[in-house]
Nucleic acid binder design. Sequence first.
DNA 1: ATGAAAGCGCTAACAG
DNA 2: CTGTTAGCGCTTTCAT
Lengths: 333, 333
Amino acid sequence: MDVTMKDVAKEANVSPSTVSRVIAGSDRISEETKKKVNDAIERLNYHPNIAARSLTNKMTKVIGIVLPSEAEHLFKNPFFIYVMTGISKYAQESGYYIMYTFFKTEEEKLSAIQNYVNSNLVDGIILTTVHSKDQCIKYLQEKDFPFVVIGRPEDTKNVLWVDNDNFQAMYNVLRKLFMKGHREIAFIGAKSELNVSKDRLSGYKQAHKTNGFDIDEKSILEVEDFREDLGYNAMKKILNERKPTAVVCTDDLLAFGASSYLVEKNIKGISIVGFNNIPLAEYQKPALTSVDINAKELGYYAAKMLVDKLEKDIMNRHYIIETNLIERESTNH
Amino acid sequence: MDVTMKDVAKEANVSPSTVSRVIAGSDRISEETKKKVNDAIERLNYHPNIAARSLTNKMTKVIGIVLPSEAEHLFKNPFFIYVMTGISKYAQESGYYIMYTFFKTEEEKLSAIQNYVNSNLVDGIILTTVHSKDQCIKYLQEKDFPFVVIGRPEDTKNVLWVDNDNFQAMYNVLRKLFMKGHREIAFIGAKSELNVSKDRLSGYKQAHKTNGFDIDEKSILEVEDFREDLGYNAMKKILNERKPTAVVCTDDLLAFGASSYLVEKNIKGISIVGFNNIPLAEYQKPALTSVDINAKELGYYAAKMLVDKLEKDIMNRHYIIETNLIERESTNH
DNA sequence: ATGAAAGCGCTAACAG
DNA sequence: CTGTTAGCGCTTTCAT
């Protein structure tokens, strides 16, 4: 653009600072000049130069977000896309821009973050993955740079985070299944080192305890990754030893695999529940019952927390996003 | 950050302008002072302030990308994520940052673009969708603002774009099937108003002509959207009237549906080919043969074109990205 | 080969 | 309520 505040000032016969005030919405400005200025802005089609504004303000109104690019999951599970749309929604509502970077390794993640911090290009950062002993969190804390984590970090002290209550979510699934009369419920999980995996398994166990049922370790299977074929094999393995009436999986892909084993062997009467409610869940045959984790909301509230901290220094330490059990054919038993 | 160029200058006993020159890699600087300055930079952990640089340079080194947020496709097909990783890769290589916005409607898309253009926040824009009679393209052309389109636009005059050769890709699929002895090949497509759909259908038809086979209009089915259930129905409908030995689908989801109909009815001996090679394709039973469109490359070259235009004003009018037929079980006939 | 100085467009005291 | 002025941190002539 070529038209600057000076031009507007001249056009409206006021000083640049008055124009600035009108734009900032200062109250100590007469309605009259406000109108004059706004008209001039309109007429000249003036738009503020963000770089100049950033320079004086020491803030850019840009949020940086860092995303894993290698995770298999990135492509099979629209989680990150949902998160991004959620962030985008809040950002648009509050006039923020969004920048993103992908990283392959933890080192790349750290250097991406350092780059953001050092360049003064973003006001705050949203982390979409948490590692145990996360170096990035440590770095950001040391620099005292505003950030929000999606997913509960190892050490929640002094960090803003947003997550589902994965314990509760799984607990409720079990409660529901118990209420329906199920007594033998198998568990298929993956990536047991992740917090979310741990929480879901705890929910599974606690539900058993609370309801007075024994936990059968042979009914608990943990595989290495969220993949259909691994779910398929896990189901097979479980059926070799046990005959559950329901199976809960910590991920839809695992559930797809488990389900397809049942379909293939024509085994009826076993309910299956997945997690994440990915779009394909509803197109499975039978359509898969799944826990929706509201990834978009996770993004939305992450952005909200960050902006709140940035603008009002309000520190809601964390948000818990509701999960919803979406019941479909796979639990019609 | 707090350490500015001035600080570095003082630390190195030179003037700020010298520091600036060292950073810019000016040649008219003695090795000695170059070293002195670099040491000071290191010692102080100095990082240039991008906003200030943008203000003087009139460029931000930021690329804006606009993405549809409503398209069902966004969540079922990792196309956009792949594109984003590709853009990100080139951007990182060339020192650019990336900003994104989602839009729901064409109006939102346009206003997102106007926002980018007006705010001087981005140097160029990548459009990930093309509408016929795209207002955004028109706007950007009028403003003479640098942009690249992923997908071939209606009118390619004066626009930089990158795309697959969808005609060729489908043509080659057909040629392969003909060579394998197939003579009755059905077509299931969707969204016939899109350029990619048109091109793929043309490829299908041209392959018939070139190879001297008649086109049977009853074997061509176009549905409204890329959905599994619609593919399922289409397959059913085709089999009511015809008995093809192969079916080509313009999208994997359509192919999944078509395939599941065959599995359900236990119909053997019909080959199926999909398009896009989404990750789930390889986990289908039977694993789906599909055309990989290299979405990541599309993004990579889109970014490259844009940066080339920005920095060297080199105008490669377009890139064509290779497609690859990934053969799996579904064409083992 | 290096320094001095002006200016990019905006905001925020400080005056009045 | 509004204008004047002084920077924000960097690049870039223009000198030397």
